[in-house]
């Protein structure tokens, strides 16, 4: 059986810069996989390449064995990949409810929109309270919830998150990570990009370490947490 998501020798970049080179990785159905690395390592670019938000220079991307490399971002989203981007990227003047509903774009997710919305509100009661408020007026943590909720509205096969902890207070980060664990237990496969390496490794099953655009380490998260190089470079001990 093919992996849910598979990248083979992926290169991507901007203009003359190749930000990501020769990245090969796989995400199995049901897993939480973390992609960690320091600032500028190419984590965001990798997620953008998977989503079709930057063009693939070389290599292949497949979802359940079906090639999606080179399809546009609209087709890739329709194939079942939902992206919670760096900086949330909500629609600030539109209401929370409108933001969430805009996540449901495929005929299937649209048909079950009310049901999924109920589940999102169950997970994030704060969003239900603020459904008629403009998304731009939410706090950072609430915006992150709205961005995750918007992605869940698509009923994705794969949920990709780019630095959900960025700019949030530690308590808020803890609650978002607990929510991610709950989302995964409910059956959603997760690919998580984080600079908060400790938290990401604690949450995930497996992880890849990205440095200067290439993968340098991979393995079970528990093993990486104990790995000498990881501890020294990312955990500060």
């Amino acid at each position: 059986m093919p992996a849910l998501l598979r990248l083979d020798g992926v290169h991507a970049g901007y203009g003359d810069l190749t930000a990501v080179r020769d990245v090969t990785l796989a995400v199995e159905a049901g897993e939480i996989v973390a992609l960690v690395g320091s600032n500028g390592a190419g984590k965001t670019t990798t997620l953008r390449a998977i989503s079709g938000l930057v063009p693939l220079r070389r290599g292949a991307v497949a979802l359940e064995g079906r090639s999606i490399g080179g399809l546009g971002s609209a087709a890739i989203a329709a194939a079942g990949i939902a992206h919670v981007p760096e900086g949330r990227q909500l629609f600030p003047t539109m209401t929370v409810l409108e933001n969430l509903e805009l996540g449901a774009r495929t005929p299937e997710s649209r048909a079950r929109r009310a049901e999924t919305l109920g589940r999102v509100y169950e997970l994030f009661p704060r969003l239900a309270e603020r459904r008629d408020q403009a998304a731009g007026t939410l706090s950072g943590g609430e915006q992150q919830m709205a961005a995750i909720g918007r992605a869940l509205m698509a009923r994705p096969r794969l949920l990709m998150l780019d630095e959900p902890s960025l700019g949030l207070a530690p308590v808020v980060v803890a609650s978002i990570f607990a929510d991610l664990a709950a989302i995964n237990r409910a059956g959603v496969t997760v690919l998580l990009v984080e600079q908060n390496v400790l938290r990401a490794l604690r949450l995930s099953h497996r992880a890849y370490v990205l440095e200067n655009g290439g993968i340098t380490l991979a393995g079970a998260s528990a093993d990486l947490l104990a790995d000498e190089r990881v501890r020294r470079a990312y955990l500060g001990r």
Partner: peptide, 8 residues
């Protein structure tokens, strides 16, 4: 950009 992210 957010619109492209959600697949519009």
């Amino acid at each position: 950009y957010g619109a492209r992210v959600v697949g519009i």
